[in-house]
Design a protein around this nucleic acid. Sequence first.
DNA 1: ACTATAAGTGACCCATTGGTCACTTATTCG
DNA 2: CGAATAAGTGACCAATGGGTCACTTATAGT
Lengths: 214, 214
Amino acid sequence: MMPATSPPRWQRRADARPQELLDAALAEFIERGYVATRLDTVARRAGVAKATLYRYYANKFELFKAVVRSAVVAEIDELAANPAKAASAREELAALLSAFFQRIVNSPLSGIPKLVIGEAGNFPEIARFYHDEVIDRARALVLAALRRGIASGEFRAIDADYGFRIAVAPLLLAIIWKHSFQACEPQPLDFDRYLAAHLDLLLGGLTAPSAEAA
Amino acid sequence: MMPATSPPRWQRRADARPQELLDAALAEFIERGYVATRLDTVARRAGVAKATLYRYYANKFELFKAVVRSAVVAEIDELAANPAKAASAREELAALLSAFFQRIVNSPLSGIPKLVIGEAGNFPEIARFYHDEVIDRARALVLAALRRGIASGEFRAIDADYGFRIAVAPLLLAIIWKHSFQACEPQPLDFDRYLAAHLDLLLGGLTAPSAEAA
DNA sequence: ACTATAAGTGACCCATTGGTCACTTATTCG
DNA sequence: CGAATAAGTGACCAATGGGTCACTTATAGT
């Protein structure tokens, strides 16, 4: 009988662990939100014990920040780095909102904004972090498109900052709907038609002559 | 020495308790959300012990439903009962969204939709309840205004159900902003200007001629 | 080989809170 | 006045989960 050398109970993989933990945590945060995500589950999903997770991330919030940076912030930065330079401001704005829609709203990643929307009220640090790292970046992109259109006379001279919020509001609503109320309705929302309807109305409103009375 | 009859340690006030508990619970839910609201705190705020609360409401969810019905649903029903019959569909829609804005978004009551947005994902029963009791009611009102305008030719023939969502999305965003991100920005959002900007764009978009090319 | 050490772990602590229950007491009614 | 009973209560339970710590063990360097 060979006393078969029992395989090691675990391996040292210090360089692979951080990313594996990040992947596991992203999936869990998306599925369950911030509070409901159990660090023990995240660790097991990554194939390690909870105490091991703490060797790489100091606490839950640090883990969360790392996840958001590696997933959402990276996505937006990529968008910002490859600007779809369109002929008109209309097209640029439409392309931008479409990109946000396809890459975030209509993807599993939407779980992150959903989580933030829900829990930012109870965790001011999360709100501040997300505001500074994500919202500000996204806003810069939208504001640029709006200002371009206003400067060129393509759009009416609205307050761009308010325009930004009104332009992205339907994206937020789509996220909320998808994650919280989808199951309450017989037929699901058609995301493409929804986006098209929004762009149609928004661009119509932006272009309409200022003084139109009833 | 008169052995002064010590005042009763507590009083029986079976008819006043339910409303007092509702008031306390509304305030707590608004301040802290669903999960973070402690039933012990609610009870103490109403001047009773936690076990007393359970004599009137079977559990946390039942208490929550009672709160929403007595506060939010009542508000919407009142709105529905006194329809501001305006001359045009434009005015009707504007009046309706303004009313929602003033009575809910720009009032402490906004804490309730905020809470639902945040926690509906983790509590399907809350989502279902809010969808059936609140969203459906609100949607009926907005849809009526939209359909009226479409029927009269005042609005373009968009899909009213999508229009509903796009019309209310900025209200939701305002709620989220107010509760979660207000503190992250130097100057606060001017709610009145924000609403005006939204109505301006929305009505502009709804009225614009269908085929306007760049 | 063998040792230094970084990587990994199980068991534990502690605070938290929805919900329950046996008990006390204010009030009402005959 | 004195039950009967509904209103009210404090003390408790069980489950939960973030975070810690003393300990074990894989592995690289010599």
